[in-house]
Design a protein around this nucleic acid. Structure first.
Lengths: 342, 342
DNA sequence: CGAAATCATCGAAGCGCTTCGACAACGACC
DNA sequence: GGTCGTTGTCGAAGCGCTTCGATGATTTCG
């Protein structure tokens, strides 16, 4: 392991000159810089991480708390954790993984020991322990997801209320006025993972405001059949469907409707909203208002890095505007089938 | 942030005494130890991570490379990454996440800068770039998964060949002699993720050795129907089924067979083998020979930590013996249905 | 009872880097 | 031609911790 001293010696300059030449934090003559760079690459010099951390008082590491609940959607989590890691790398930060049974202790430890410069909190519950802890730590923290009480916190998330509104608006614009929502499993709601609740709230409110008939079902199985049946019972003329649910349930919607003699998108137009999975592999691809891990993580990491490097910013919640991906699963109730679009 | 000097001052002893009292690396009188501990907890002292790393020349961090291929099973990955993290914590190590497009660079970087003390490699292909790189790094590395050429590498994985054998043996013991295997999607095999290949190999060989009729199908969809049809075409008397495939395919096996008038376990007995998901939520729970993330990760992390702390150990491959979880989805072909067992 | 071993503690030397202040050397400017 | 900025470089002071060797103090034992 070559050290900065070796490079300095090889280049015939002082240690500080090497440091400045490599960091660019002070002006260095081109000729010296070249010598230093040549020496560094000749020796394969890589600055020692801990030495740098200690001297600079910055670890260039951000911690990510990714709890695993029994009903956690691992696939979604992985996407977020990976996306955070990727975004962090773009700012030259690495990512430390903190697991659940360890989440509070881990946050505390990585903050108190200066192991991490900042923390990203994933999979936030309505009443999340980590929120209370976050308020006591002076380490920059960004939540991806929104707890009920956001006082003093920096949060980023998809605007689920707006996503629900967008879904309803699209269906209404297509002449659909009997709109069902398939939400999440009861146990997910009970755990108070917050986003399904926010989506529900947005859906209820906007359905009422828009004057459409609506119903909500909570799947009990890993398929849509039961939920669809429940919706039809309440709303026999169901002609629009919003899916804020798990992948397996959403994937079986078309089949479940087909079994009842109803087709998508003609009889029932459907939109998946606030979901992390892609529907393009489904038997029939569904229009999607995605919960885009990249979008959320990118914003969150940018903010966190800014907080680390430029000092704390005022706590605030950033809602990310929903976007719409059209696959042709919503058609006008009066028109004929429009061919599927990519 | 209280430093060790503050604690020393508060306790009225020297810095080194504090260090030894807290680490236990030299004998310290009980009275002094108590004073130090009191001072430390009074001040809320936490040793500064980078200072400790620098002085001790050990980061207590292990890196995990978790690539994300297009066809990667995120859920399985997350389990492994989490499990590694959990196991690492038990040895007082933290876990750094390295993402794919960054995997080689990341491994290099974390090793060269001493950011990580060791590396765990996940989701290993038959011809994995990371194997070649691993041979050039002097940093301890453990592979979870087995590349084709294991020269100079330390690898840990489920014994997939033995798992395939165990599955066949169980079915044969139940009088099943027409055994089908549902393997993975073609694209997964093409990428040469290695474990499906090893399973395939074990299955082929042991089916031949056992003198049973066998067939293999590769699912094309996210359900079992097509694969089952393919198997029945080749093996009309199909009475045993081995599932080394994805969760969605395995989950729909019972339904697919039912549509063809065949029941599980009477007409066809089935075993899921070498899979990370649990079948206990399936419409019908299937006997499982699990690819147990905890088992693999625990062994891998133990080995890695040992390599870090006690010096390199000779490269070798450790195969983990398969275990069998009985849910009653395999019954004797001559007996009547046995009630499902949990 | 003195020599040797043991124990408890301290001081100081790093670990490898960043960064501050100092200081030549050099033009620019009036 | 002195004064003032610039510019480029260097030395040294840490960052907070671990660990080695030294040193008294205390115990052990022949």
């Amino acid at each position: 392991m070559a050290t900065i001293a070796d490079v300095a010696h090889e280049a015939g300059v002082s240690i500080s000159t090497v440091s400045y030449a490599l960091s660019g934090k002070r002006s260095i003559s081109p000729s010296t810089r070249d010598k230093v760079e040549a020496a560094a690459s000749k020796l394969g010099y890589r600055p020692h991480a801990s030495a740098r951390m200690l001297a600079a008082n910055r670890s260039n590491i951000i911690a990510v708390t990714a709890p695993l609940h029994a009903d956690t959607d691992h696939s979604a989590h992985m996407q977020f954790a990976m996306e955070v890691t990727q975004c962090a790398r773009e700012h030259d930060y690495d990512t430390l993984l903190l697991v659940h049974n360890d989440a509070l202790e881990g946050m505390q430890r990585s903050a108190a020991t200066s192991l991490a410069d900042g923390i990203i909190v994933l999979d936030v519950d309505a009443h999340d322990d980590r929120a209370a802890l976050a308020r006591t730590l002076k380490c920059p923290i960004v939540f991806i997801g929104i707890p009920e009480d956001t006082t003093g916190l920096v949060c980023v998330d998809l605007d689920f209320e707006a996503a629900a509104e967008m879904a309803i608006d699209r269906l209404v614009a297509a002449g659909r006025n009997n709109i069902g929502l398939i939400s999440h499993h009861q146990e997910t709601l009970e755990r108070e993972s917050n986003f399904p609740l926010r989506f529900l709230h947005g859906f209820r409110k906007h359905a009422a405001d828009s004057g459409v008939a609506s119903a909500i079902a909570y799947p009990t199985e890993h398929r849509a059949h039961e939920a669809i049946a429940a919706l039809l019972k309440e709303l026999p003329d169901l002609d629009g469907l919003v899916l804020n649910t798990s992948a397996d349930v959403a994937a079986s919607v078309t089949a479940a409707l087909a079994e009842l003699g109803k087709s998508v998108p003609v009889d029932v137009s459907a939109i998946a909203a606030g979901v992390t999975f892609s529907t393009h592999r489904f038997p029939l691809a569904l229009d999607t208002i995605p919960l885009d891990a990249h979008a959320s993580c990118s914003v969150a990491v940018d903010m966190l890095v800014e907080m680390v490097e430029d000092g704390l910013k005022p706590p605030a919640t950033t809602l990310i505007a929903p976007t719409y991906i059209n696959f042709g699963s919503v058609t006008s109730s009066t028109a004929s089938v429009i061919p599927q679009v990519n």
